[in-house]
């Protein structure tokens, strides 16, 4: 079969892009699995820790005119600070650290697909907590800045019987945020494993172009979108009628 030669279906199974268990252990009768997601997460966190250690060391002996690594670190911090400042305005100060952290974390998670790892963000167990964090921040800031009366007034706009719909709208925020990130990264992972699994006979060099799109472009855009939406929602929650 001619197609069978090109599309080597025999070598391919859906397992190649699923989360795989590496080893399991038992605690109190429960079997817990350490999966590829855990390992990639640990790798990403280790990379970021080592990077930040080097960044701290280069900033301790910082020069007036930056060179080399210090230049790179300052550029990154400047970029992230500018992004937060331009989106959140006067609320930027409190959220610089948080937004910068999740930006770098999600970016490195998405980019880890370049190294042949399974991106941790292609696991709903990683993106959903990120969405829940955003939801917690939104709710906390809403109650802190608009007080209980403002929150109830917001729920009852435009009419009191609109409460269920407004509640659904509030709870849809973390779900849509996390599903968007998850589905984008997962679709890239599935595409790449289809290319490598089905076209393994001719998959030389040219999948690099696909990696640039799915891992780098799409990953960077989704990181940007996640952080932008988080900032927009938080700014919304912090803005009262008085300004």
């Amino acid at each position: 079969m001619g197609v069978g030669m090109l599309l080597s279906l025999d070598d391919f199974s859906a397992d190649s892009f699923m989360v795989k268990g590496v080893f399991s252990f038992e605690i109190g009768g429960q079997t817990l699995w350490i999966t590829t997601t855990h390992i990639c997460l640990i790798l990403v966190v280790l990379t970021l820790s080592i990077f930040s250690m080097f960044a701290k060391r280069s900033m301790l002996k910082a020069a007036e005119v930056p060179t080399g690594f210090q230049n790179f670190v300052e550029m990154g911090v400047d970029l992230l600070d500018g992004l937060v400042k331009s989106t959140m305005g006067k609320h930027a100060g409190a959220f610089r650290n948080y937004i910068g952290t999740i930006f770098i974390f999600i970016l490195f998670s998405n980019l880890s697909g370049l190294l042949g790892l399974r991106p941790p963000t292609a696991d709903y167990g990683v993106t959903f907590p990120l969405g829940v964090l955003t939801f917690t921040l939104i709710t906390f800031n809403k109650f802190k800045y608009q007080h209980v009366s403002g929150v109830i007034k917001g729920l009852m706009s435009p009419w009191p019987f609109w409460i269920p719909i407004n509640l659904i709208g509030d709870f849809a925020v973390p779900i849509s945020l996390s599903l968007r990130l998850f589905a984008n990264v997962l679709s890239g992972t599935v595409m790449m494993s289809l290319v490598y699994g089905l076209l393994s006979m001719i998959a030389y060099a040219w999948p690099g172009a696909l990696h640039v799109y799915f891992d780098m472009f799409s990953g960077a855009i989704q990181t940007y979108v996640f952080c932008m939406l988080t900032m927009t929602y938080i700014t919304d929650a912090r803005t009262t009628d008085e300004g």
Partner: peptide, 27 residues
């Protein structure tokens, strides 16, 4: 450009829900 990309990424969500349903059905 940045506004366009943000809007497009948000508009993409509904399509991604379809993709998720398809993947659930298939795998």
């Amino acid at each position: 450009t940045s506004t366009m990309l943000l809007g497009q990424a948000v508009a993409e969500t509904t399509g991604l829900y379809g993709l998720l349903v398809a993947m659930l059905l298939m795998f």
